[in-house]
């Protein structure tokens, strides 16, 4: 399995996300990932698709989310695209910086219940980038394959 391209499209309905997640894990389990595990790839894609549905489409069904996989001998690239509201700069700008998890050394009541998704995504990917092109938002995730580090 040297190179390949696969495209999936789902409706912006949370009940559809599981199917993408399972497909991604299955695909990733057939590739020799350098650092990530198939379950981590699934986590990253699920977080990205959740983000498209919740933020770009405000949890409204009936919109399109595209997930495109492309792999070669070096890496697995996954692009998640939607056509909704652009990602706020405060979030998109985080992809070029180090992972900063929400502060956990706080009182129990102040412990954050949200805001973990994009940081988790960054933690498990080798590279993350965001691009707005006309009406299309694309989050690109990259995972190195084992041949790169061999």
């Amino acid at each position: 399995m040297d190179t390949g391209k696969i495209k999936l499209s789902i409706d912006s309905d949370m009940r559809q996300v599981q199917h993408v997640g399972e497909a991604v894990r299955c695909l990733a389990s057939h590739l020799e990932l350098a650092d990530a595990k198939p379950s981590s790839v699934e986590l990253a894609v699920v977080e990205a698709v959740n983000n498209s549905i919740e933020h770009a489409y405000q949890s409204e069904a009936g919109n399109l989310v595209d997930v495109a996989f492309e792999y070669n001998t070096d890496c697995l690239k996954i692009k998640i695209s939607d056509y909704g509201t652009p990602m706020p700069k405060s979030i998109a700008g985080q992809f070029s910086s180090d992972v900063t998890m929400p502060n956990t050394s706080v009182e129990l009541d102040a412990l954050p219940e949200s805001g973990w998704g994009m940081q988790l995504l960054k933690s498990v990917c080798d590279e993350v980038s965001y691009k707005r092109n006309e009406s299309r938002n694309t989050l690109s995730l990259s995972f190195k394959l084992a041949s790169v580090t061999a």
Partner: peptide, 30 residues
């Protein structure tokens, strides 16, 4: 499988038990 929404729900549950309660987790997979 668990995502950040699931984690948020676990944290919320932990907070609901409050300082006087107990909240523990068991049987996590890798």
């Amino acid at each position: 499988f668990m995502d950040s929404s699931g984690l948020g729900a676990v944290i919320s549950s932990f907070k609901l038990t409050g300082q006087k309660g107990d909240f523990v987790i068991c049987n996590m997979n890798e």
